[in-house]
Design a protein around this nucleic acid. Sequence first.
DNA 1: GTTGAGTGCAACCAAAGGTTGCGAAAGGTT
DNA 2: AACCTTTCGCAACCTTTGGTTGCACTCAAC
Lengths: 116, 116
Amino acid sequence: MNAAVDDELWSAIGDPIRRTMIDLLLSDGPGTATSLSRRLPVTRQAVSKHLAVLDRVGLIHAEPAGRERHYQVDEAQLARAVAQLSAVGSTWDARLRRIKRIAETIELHRTDNQGG
Amino acid sequence: MNAAVDDELWSAIGDPIRRTMIDLLLSDGPGTATSLSRRLPVTRQAVSKHLAVLDRVGLIHAEPAGRERHYQVDEAQLARAVAQLSAVGSTWDARLRRIKRIAETIELHRTDNQGG
DNA sequence: GTTGAGTGCAACCAAAGGTTGCGAAAGGTT
DNA sequence: AACCTTTCGCAACCTTTGGTTGCACTCAAC
């Protein structure tokens, strides 16, 4: 629907670090910048920036807990992102199928007309 | 299988301009840097750089034709990329379902124990 | 109150995406 | 053949983004 929002979602999940972060938050439950950075090949500050990006597009949200900030995945928004992925995937898939069908048709006509 | 290749495929299709380029090549057939740049909000040089990126990961390949270079989608490689998309999508989808199920179970126990 | 873990902010660096400018090669025109 | 147009590739430059280090602040625990 909204192309700008779509692009933001894409660029958010397009980064391998951010995809891993979402994976970690999903598999291990809520976490902080520090806890995530311990399981990633980048510093806490880099993780913090990525968390800000994911937060900005609504894929995660923070919950202050004392001196810590617990981040967790926003399920609805992630479900929307997954829908985007499968939408693009099926679009390309459909076009690949159509191209293949056309190619086969051409091939068929060629052998048909030229007799082999 | 190969994480590095996966990340390269992802970062290739993560860029909105490159996704649009693939869309155009699929819908309109082979094209040149110049023809694509006419349908995109960036200059030919920018398109050329994106084409080089897509070429490097094997999503497209060029065919010299006189003074032009015709680019077209590599169907097998794009099919592989589509598979990556759906793989990540279904992984997240499965985890979201599991989280939802756990949440419902907890909720059920809570009302069960506290009686409302 | 001091110490330690977690956070945020600022400065600095490198890579990526984008632009302009220019020169070279291929094709069409006269 | 000479000329003009189109397309391309290369180089220089700018801006944004991902990453780092360094420092100051807060909250919890001792």
